[in-house]
Amino acid sequence: MAPSLESSTRGTLPIQQSSPVRLMTGMISDYMDYQQLQMRPMDEDLPLATPSPSTPAPFFVRSAVDGLSSTSASFLLTSSPLKSTSAPPTFKPYTLSPIKNDSRYSHLFGFAPQSAREAELMQALRESESRDNSRKRSMAEMQASTVLAGMYTNRAQAQLQAAEERKRRKTGKRKMGDGKAKYFSGDDFYRLCVEDDEKKEQEAAEKLKRAADREAHASRLATWQEANEAIRTKNAERRAEYSTDVASWETEKAAAKAEKRRPNWPKPKLADYGIETLLPKPKKGDHDDPEEEDSDDQSGNGSED
């Protein structure tokens, strides 16, 4: 016989879920019952009932969709773009009991079956416990996936909100964007036109100034690179000269040691060869005249030679 009450075949979770989740859970359960009814023949002589492609959606599907449209997840049924305020339904996981290594029915499995019926029941109990543990592992994996999906949704929602804020901060370029008619000779409109022209001129001047600053900075960078390259070349020549003098001194030192005397000159020092340090890289905020820097660098290089 069929159960008299729907609640007699429906379980409830320890934690109350949100209304969209409850609706979808009920629809899935109803669909499973609907499939069983479709697979059950009404008469042994009649074939199984197979729904045709043109069969309308069952009532429980339409009822669930109608109910979902009145919940916080109604935005899922519309074709309008998602907003950052459209939060998905939250899933509240409940605590799972730990999976024990030892069977909870170990005291029953300790008895030897006295009949074939008892052996079948004991095997069925083992299979039932194995299925229970398997479902528990699957539930833990589903809850973990739901938590990770929630983290992803939170980040996506934050990025969507940031994009909406950036779009909202963009100001229009129309002088009067309210769509209402205006007198071209009115004082307010004339004032807006003057302010708009001044703003455009200021923006154009700032743009030209930034371009000039970039060109000046590029020129300073080129001069800096050339000057440092010249310093590197001079330093390489002076280091080579230092190495040659050190080799000569080593020869003199060996000869003096063989003749039991002191070397005729002291060991050369690298600091005496005028090794120059590289110039610091110019910064973008530096507005010095490039021609003055060129003249200073050239005069400095000439004095060092």
Rank of each mutant, 00 (worst) to 15 (best):
E6N: 11
S7Y: 05
S7N: 11
T9Y: 04
T9G: 03
T9N: 07
T12W: 09
L13M: 13
P14W: 02
Q16I: 01
S18P: 02
S19W: 05
S19Y: 03
R22V: 06
R22T: 04
M27S: 07
M27P: 01
I28L: 15
D30A: 15
D30Y: 02
Y34E: 02
Q35E: 08
Q36T: 05
Q36G: 15
M42T: 14
M42S: 12
D45K: 15
D45N: 14
L48S: 04
A49M: 11
T50I: 15
S52V: 03
S52C: 06
S54Q: 12
A57T: 07
F59M: 06
F59H: 11
V61S: 05
R62S: 10
S63M: 10
V65T: 12
V65M: 12
D66G: 04
S69T: 07
S69Y: 03
S70E: 14
T71L: 04
S72V: 00
L76H: 10
S80Y: 11
L82C: 02
T85A: 10
T85W: 03
P88L: 09
P89R: 00
T90Y: 00
T90Q: 13
F91A: 07
K92M: 11
Y94K: 09
Y94S: 15
Y94H: 13
T95E: 14
S97T: 05
S97N: 11
P98M: 06
K100A: 11
N101G: 13
D102C: 08
S103L: 07
R104A: 12
L108W: 03
L108P: 00
F109M: 12
G110D: 14
G110M: 08
Q114R: 01
Q114I: 02
S115C: 07
A116H: 10
E120G: 08
E120Y: 10
E120W: 07
L125V: 02
E127G: 12
S128I: 01
S128Q: 09
E129G: 07
S130K: 15
S130Y: 05
D132M: 12
N133P: 00
S134D: 07
R135E: 05
R135N: 12
K136A: 07
M139G: 05
M139S: 13
